[in-house]
């Protein structure tokens, strides 16, 4: 609970935090508290504890329907705030050496490690085929892990969902892989959101460390060109597991 970090704070400061959240401090005292919050974690914890204590009282205010243009106004502000780079025109697999792609994947490393740790625990509990390679596929924008690829035996690899994914009705997720030295990605088939997919390993050469796996958004029947055409939804590379 949030009170734990406010231990040791004086009763006066707890009360000050309460009056701050309640809203009864005058402008000068409000500003004084706001100035202290930046470098006093204990006071901050006391304020957050009061926010949570009093939050249910928010329901006493009658909800009001925002005017239709309010969201558009907010969205315009978000766009003005941080113009996002336009999607690259080249297919992703041509940006193979793109630094930002790999930086992004490295940033996902922490989540990857957490998922790997979880998977390894599961392995201990249910001794199954030895996993030699593992891939965690993360969303490129927020690095949220979405899928895991396991190559547990020489005969197949398995794509395992970590949660549910929404795909527009006229679209499908397509599973791709590309190892170093290949001319382009190879399709491993269409994926049903939320369901495992088994790929017989006979369809592809032996897995390599760093081999890339991707899920892209494609037309419902799959990419018309045999190469990825839509945006990347999940991406990851193979890690050798002892």
């Amino acid at each position: 609970m949030s009170t734990r970090n406010s231990a040791g704070l004086s009763a006066d400061d707890h009360e000050l935090a309460g009056e701050y959240v309640l809203g009864t401090l005058d402008a000068a005292r409000r500003r004084a508290v706001q100035a202290r919050l930046a470098d006093e974690p204990a006071l901050q914890a006391a304020v957050l504890a009061w926010e949570d204590r009093l939050l249910p009282l928010s329901d006493l205010a009658e909800p009001a329907t925002p005017s239709a243009h309010l969201w558009r106004r907010i969205e315009r502000s978000l766009n003005a705030l941080a113009p996002r780079p336009a999607p690259a025109a080249a297919p992703w697999w041509r940006n193979w050496h793109s630094l930002s792609l790999w930086r992004g994947l490295a940033a996902g490393g922490f989540a990857t490690a957490a998922v790997l740790a979880g998977m390894l625990v599961m392995r201990e509990m249910a001794p199954p085929p030895t996993t030699r390679f593992m891939v965690v596929l993360v969303a490129p924008d927020d690095k949220a892990p979405g899928w895991v690829v396991q190559a547990g035996s020489a005969s197949r690899i398995e794509l395992i969902p970590l949660g549910s994914v929404e795909v527009p009705a006229d679209k499908a997720l397509q599973f791709w892989t590309k190892a170093d030295g290949w001319s382009g990605p190879v399709s491993l088939g269409l994926v049903t959101p939320g369901q495992r997919l088994e790929v017989p390993a006979g369809k592809l050469p032996a897995l390599q460390p760093n081999q890339l796996f991707e899920l892209t958004l494609e037309p419902r029947t799959g990419s018309p060109t045999g190469k990825p055409t839509g945006p990347i939804r999940y991406i990851g590379r193979a890690v050798k597991v002892m």
Binding site: G23, S58, D59, A61, E62, P63, A64, T65, P66, L70, W71
Partner: peptide, 12 residues
């Protein structure tokens, strides 16, 4: 949360 947030803010 939009309508509830607006309700809380408007009341204040």
């Amino acid at each position: 949360e939009g309508p509830r947030l607006l309700g809380v803010v408007q009341r204040i």
